[in-house]
Simulated assay, not measured.
Amino acid sequence: MELSLDKNELSQALAKNTLDDIPSPNSNAKKITGLIKQGGKVTGYQLSDNTIIQKEEAIALARQGGILGVGIAHRGETEYLKSIPDGTENNNLSNLPTVSPDEIGH
């Protein structure tokens, strides 16, 4: 039996392979809608209910299935969230707007 993948499927499979963990989202999982940055680095996230959470909280929440469409990866000793590849670029975390917690009113 021959396994056949198109370039898009192969690219997605390779990208998923870079994730340490891909949690199954709960039925009430939130989406990440914005990034909180400090000095160009992501320090937190805005969720679809307008909640702002710190990066470490988001990783823990994602592990529990509370965030939709993300996996957990690491660089050195640092863990971070990464979009689960789905062939769509516009929902990648790097394409989300940067928001200020002050703009949200929290």
Rank of each mutant, 00 (worst) to 15 (best):
E2K: 15
S4K: 14
N8H: 06
N8A: 15
E9V: 12
L10Y: 05
L10H: 10
L10S: 08
S11N: 13
Q12M: 02
L14G: 11
L14V: 05
N17R: 01
T18H: 02
L19G: 08
I22M: 02
I22V: 03
P23N: 04
S24M: 07
N26I: 00
S27Q: 01
S27K: 02
K31C: 07
L35H: 01
I36M: 10
K41G: 11
K41Q: 06
V42P: 02
V42Y: 02
T43M: 14
Q46W: 09
D49V: 08
T51I: 07
I52P: 02
I53D: 09
Q54F: 08
A58S: 07
A60R: 08
L61M: 08
G65M: 12
I67H: 07
I67P: 06
V70E: 08
G71L: 10
I72W: 00
I72S: 11
R75K: 07
R75M: 03
E79R: 05
E79A: 10
K82C: 13
N90S: 15
S94H: 12
S94M: 08
S94E: 09
N95V: 07
N95K: 12
N95H: 09
T98F: 10
V99F: 15
V99S: 07
S100A: 15
S100I: 14
E103A: 15
